[in-house]
């Protein structure tokens, strides 16, 4: 990929944010995770095109960068919906009915875990303990932590996310 393509694959804003991270680190590669997350914040996910451009910017191989991107569950290498719904399946929520909640969420959205609704509104993912076990069962929609989820009120909850 030529330098010219790199410029179009990453916005100047993204590059500026990534360079700020790099300036606080001993070397460019150390910013790999920050850089992936910056691109995702701007675009919702990390495409192959973004990944190649990032590898060039960080002066590392794209294979190495992809091995990092795919290691972390909060870095998406596939497009996701406008809202990401994450339902906790760890033990405290399990004790408080997470399995039943998971079934109800899938029914309500009409998709299974790992899928996105046809209208591109929601992506559904499992997540490990969200650190709010006193309010189990829990889920997270985008940046909102929702505790004491009542499976019968899901329609209400989802209606707040257009």
């Amino acid at each position: 990929m030529s330098d010219n393509q790199l410029v179009t694959a990453l916005s100047s804003e993204e590059i500026a944010e990534i360079e700020t991270e790099i300036s606080h680190l001993p070397d460019r590669e150390s910013a790999a995770i920050d850089a992936l997350m910056i691109v995702q914040r701007h675009r919702g996910w990390v495409s192959d095109e973004s990944l190649f451009a990032l590898a060039q910017l960080l002066e590392m191989s794209s294979a190495e960068l992809d091995s990092i991107a795919t290691f972390y569950n909060l870095i998406f290498r596939q497009p996701v919906g406008r809202h990401v719904v994450m339902v906790c399946d760890s033990v405290s929520c399990y004790v408080m009915g997470a399995d039943q909640l998971a079934t109800k969420v899938q029914d309500e959205l009409g998709i299974k875990f790992g899928e996105t609704t046809n209208d591109g509104r929601f992506t559904l993912l499992p997540i490990v303990c969200l650190g709010a076990c006193d309010r189990a069962p829990t889920m997270m929609i985008d940046k909102d932590l929702i505790g004491l989820v009542d499976p019968s009120s899901l329609q209400d909850v989802f209606s707040r996310y257009e």
Partner: peptide, 11 residues
């Protein structure tokens, strides 16, 4: 990196 299931003190 509080992620031990059942743990919610550091948050």
């Amino acid at each position: 990196d509080e992620m031990e299931p059942g743990t919610f003190k550091d948050r």
